[in-house]
Design a protein around this nucleic acid. Structure first.
Lengths: 342, 342
DNA sequence: ATGGAGTTTGAGAGCGCTCTCAAGCTCTTG
DNA sequence: CAAGAGCTTGAGAGCGCTCTCAAACTCCAT
């Protein structure tokens, strides 16, 4: 019986036409109050739910927003960045009455094949792409006519709308903090340099040193690529050059760094201070699970997700307007690993 | 131009009718080889993509599978269970040509309101519900006519189809292992007892003790509810009763336990052995980030996701068949925290 | 009363696809 | 070579909704 309900039927039950019921459902103005009431009444009584497919066909809107997560995704397993982001996106979708379609690509092939699928007409109202890097085949998605928003500035596509946190300033702040604590030989373990997050954090590191009159020492810069193994090895590689502090471009890598330092018999922050990036570890829980608790730059990940949806909806509503560039602030979270507090 | 392509148009370009093109696209048999070739050719040349809404309307199938994650979700932020699960589900969706719609509920209200939404006709072909507990309002979803599959045995609904890992046997194995190492006073920190996972792991613990002739000591059983804070406190509460080993019902809680033991000046595994559950920590990375590395019961989380989709698709295909009950095996992963190896 | 502006409603034409039905073909086989 | 048994194809009827258009109705100022 549920399956048999249609606009037509609701209409005849309420003594009005299909068109009127449609108007009520879609909140059109200019409906007599009592009529609207009567229709709503019938809808409530019958438990009628409009058929989404028919709606989409007629209106060209599906209420579906796509979230595309590319293949790199070591990260999906090792840290909580994506869960947080998805959380924010999902919440904003719920609030705006949209449904979130999730596309996680696992192989290059999938990425190639499904990218086209994702764009097929009449399927998604808009698209959010997270974690793209320069050579990503997903770039083709940016060229489509569909409204697209990228999370993380896509440096290769200045025309793309995006939401990001201020990576450069965040990194700058972290390093400036270390400098203010008197550190002189500050090393960094960078993220992937083919992503804005990696590149810009590295730039923030460089800027902070330069502006405070400290020399740039290439030996104190190692590539971590946002991978824990590389960060572990990178940390060991740094030690001969005697850094007194390390700025690590992600918390997940910073864990490896702490581990490597411990394995090398060094104490944090006494021998080496460490500052991370992301604040993924402890935000939600009162128990400090890593030792020492990590000083870090907090990104408003959840808010980035919410913002992404809001911005995307704005693009959908006003298609022929200039690209949006939303950059959210970060925050220095001081804990013990930098030595600023006991 | 892309937007103007229809079956009709492809048909006229290929010199056949709309119906024939439709058959080609849907892989019907009984099409002359050369005709099929010609049509595929035109489709490839034009880049035509069928309109999903129209398709759904006519065929009553949308290709959308829903994944519902209830509100409890402390866990979504603190451990990698859900990311792994989503990963598996997503992969199976990609492989079967389905699209994953993600519903994460953040408040009770949302859960109430959106649950109905989720079920609206012509929207989802089927539904996967993860992490339900007994009094969950989502239970109403189980009563709908839509094909539903639950991840984690829903004890209150014996008629529901589900996929789960063998919680009881997993826990049994963990505790039996501790017993085999000579431990006598084995404590446990349980999960939520209003979820099968919590209840059954507790049962496995009890069974192992009983079958090996060890007494049940209620003072050695504390509730952790899968929450890190409670596990931390619970561990401290256990100490006066001098356990020589602790079976913790999740890795994420086990981290808290390790921390609490360290804070209390106890050494693992020398003073107290610890075994966790889930193996969420280290599977993907070569760097052991926690100390000591955790002996644990590995659940095939990814495979559970894949299995969930496959089973759901089977239910969709064969609706009027008995409920599916899929229980996957677990595996004891021996590392250092139990003291079995150096 | 009467004209006109504004409000409220219904009829009807799609949206682009699937699927049934029957017609037209191509083969066998006796 | 005719008859019957598949194959292969096209016509046409929806699927359930949105949206335009114009009719009908309301209300007020004249």
């Amino acid at each position: 019986m549920d399956g048999k309900l249609t606009l037509e039927k609701i209409g005849s039950l309420a003594g009005v036409s299909r068109a009127t019921v449609s108007r009520v459902i879609n909140n059109h103005p200019n409906i007599r109050k009592d009529v609207r009431q009567r229709v709503l009444q019938v809808i409530a009584e019958t438990g009628y739910q409009p058929n989404q497919a028919a709606r989409s066909l007629a209106s060209k809107r599906t209420g579906l927003l796509g979230l595309v997560i590319p293949r790199l995704i070591q990260a999906l397993f090792t840290d909580l960045y994506y869960p947080r982001l998805i959380q924010g996106i999902s919440q904003a979708c719920n609030e705006s009455g949209h449904t979130l379609a999730l596309f996680i690509f696992h192989t290059d092939e999938e990425e190639q094949q499904l990218a086209a699928q994702v764009l097929r007409q009449g399927f998604l109202d808009g698209l959010i792409i997270a974690g793209m890097h320069f050579s990503d085949p997903l770039n083709q998605l940016l060229l489509s006519e569909k409204p697209v928003l990228v999370i993380g500035e896509p440096l290769a596509y200045p025309q793309a709308s995006f939401v990001d946190a201020d990576n450069r300033l965040g990194a700058y702040t972290a390093v400036a903090h270390l400098i203010s604590l008197g550190h002189q030989r500050i090393a960094t373990i960078t993220g992937r340099l083919d992503m804005a997050a990696g590149q810009q954090r590295r730039q923030g590191y460089l800027d902070a040193l330069t502006e405070h009159g400290l020399p740039i020492d290439e030996q104190l810069i190692v590539a971590g690529d946002f991978e824990q193994e590389k960060a572990y090895q990178g940390t060991l590689d740094l030690l001969p050059h005697q850094p007194d502090a390390i700025f690590v471009a992600s918390d997940s890598m910073a864990l490896s760094t702490l581990r490597a330092l411990a394995d090398a018999g060094l104490q944090v922050p006494k021998d080496v201070a460490v500052v991370g990036y992301d604040d993924l570890m402890a935000e939600e829980t009162a128990v400090p699970l890593i030792n020492p608790p990590l000083t870090t730059i907090r990104q408003p990940i959840h808010r980035m997700g919410v913002q992404a949806v809001q911005t995307l909806l704005d693009i959908i509503k006003n298609p022929h307007t200039p690209p949006r560039r939303v950059i959210l602030p970060t925050e220095l979270i001081i804990r013990q690993s930098c030595g600023a507090v006991q």
